[in-house]
Amino acid sequence: MKSKVLKVVKIGGKLIENEAKFTEFLKDFVALEGPKILVHGGGNLATEIAGKLGYKTQMFEGRRITDADSIKVITMVYGGLINKNIVAKLQALENNAVGLCGADGLSIVSEKRPVKEVDFGFVGDVKKVNANFIDSILEQNITPVFSAISCTEEGVLLNTNGDSVAAEITQAMSSIYETELYFCFEKKGVLADAQNDDSVIEEIDREKYEELLAEKIISDGMLPKLHNCFQALEHGVKQIFLGDFKLLKKESVYTKISN
C-alpha cells in the first residue's frame, strides 16, 4: 500500500510575473508537508523576449507553435532564467531544490508532434517519464523543479505544454505514491463566465465537462488543461485542483476535478 502522498504543483507564468503573489505562493508551497514537485510555465516572458529578439509567437488552440528560433528562446527562458530563479528562491526559504528539464536523467522523454492540420515545429508530446529517477531525488528530500522542456531519445529538446508535463509526471509517480495534482494560475478556478472572476465552478466531473464543452464555456488555454486533468484521473491520479496563488492553502474558492 502506498503510504506517502506526493503533491505535484504546476504554476503558470502570469503568477510568476506577479512578485507579491509569487512570493506568497512559494511560502505556501514550502509549507506543504511530504514530498512535492513543482512544474512551471513562463510563456508570457518567453513571448516578450522573443519579441525583443524579433521573433513572432504563433499559437493554436492554446498551444505554442515553436520554430527553430523559438526553441532557443524557450530553452533560455524556461530552462535558465525562470527555472534557476525559482530554485534560488526556494533555497532562500530553506527548501532544498534542484532545477530540471526533461533531458536531465531522461526524466521526460517525448516525441515530436506529427504534422497534421498544423505544424507545431519543435513541440513534444510526452512519451514516458522516468519515475525512478525522479523518486531518487525525492528520496533525498530534494524538491525537483521542472521547466516545460522535454527531450527526445535522440537528444532533441522540445517545447512541451507545462500542464501536460505536470499531468504526465503525476501519472507516472502514481506507481510509487498516492498523487495529487494542483494547477495554480491567475484565475480562482474554472470560470462559468470568463469575464467574471467570481463565477468559479467548484466541482467538475466528466458529465459536467462534456456539458461545458458543448456550451463552448471552455476554450483557449483551459481546453488542454482540463483535457490533461481527466486523462490524469484515468491513469491513477487521485485528486486534482485548480485555483489561484492561494490554492495550496485551500482557504478560498477553487475548482476540484473528479471522475
Results as ranks from 00 to 15, higher is better:
183 F>D: 02
75 T>W: 07
151 C>Q: 14
145 V>K: 04
43 G>C: 09
55 Y>V: 13
124 G>N: 12
30 V>G: 00
231 Q>N: 14
63 R>W: 07
173 M>F: 10
38 L>M: 03
186 E>A: 01
110 S>E: 06
99 G>L: 07
52 K>V: 00
254 Y>N: 02
68 A>V: 09
255 T>R: 06
52 K>H: 10
186 E>Q: 09
102 G>Y: 07
146 F>T: 01
195 Q>D: 14
79 G>F: 03
68 A>N: 14
82 I>E: 10
178 E>Q: 15
186 E>R: 04
215 E>L: 06
85 N>E: 15
3 S>A: 10
106 L>R: 09
99 G>P: 12
114 P>W: 14
191 L>E: 10
93 L>R: 11
56 K>G: 00
176 I>M: 13
253 V>A: 00
87 V>I: 13
34 G>H: 11
64 R>N: 11
170 T>Q: 06
146 F>P: 01
34 G>Y: 13
250 K>P: 04
158 L>G: 03
115 V>P: 06
103 A>T: 06
212 L>F: 08
125 D>Q: 09
63 R>M: 12
184 C>Q: 07
123 V>S: 11
181 L>F: 06
72 K>I: 05
251 E>D: 15
108 I>E: 08
215 E>G: 00
83 N>R: 08
221 G>E: 15
237 V>I: 04
46 A>Y: 07
70 S>Q: 12
187 K>C: 00
187 K>R: 11
106 L>V: 00
163 D>M: 08
29 F>Y: 08
13 G>A: 10
50 A>L: 07
175 S>G: 09
257 I>G: 02
20 A>C: 04
226 L>N: 05
150 S>I: 04
254 Y>R: 00
5 V>C: 03
131 A>N: 11
79 G>W: 09
182 Y>M: 03
85 N>C: 02
134 I>S: 03
92 A>Q: 15
245 F>Q: 13
141 N>T: 08
90 L>E: 10
223 L>E: 07
89 K>L: 12
106 L>I: 00
67 D>C: 02
88 A>N: 15
167 A>T: 05
163 D>W: 13
171 Q>S: 10
200 V>A: 00
201 I>D: 11
178 E>A: 05
175 S>H: 13
155 G>Y: 12
126 V>F: 02
132 N>D: 15
175 S>D: 15
48 E>P: 01
44 N>I: 12
112 K>S: 04
26 L>N: 05
63 R>T: 02
202 E>R: 11
35 P>A: 04
202 E>W: 03
20 A>H: 12
92 A>K: 15
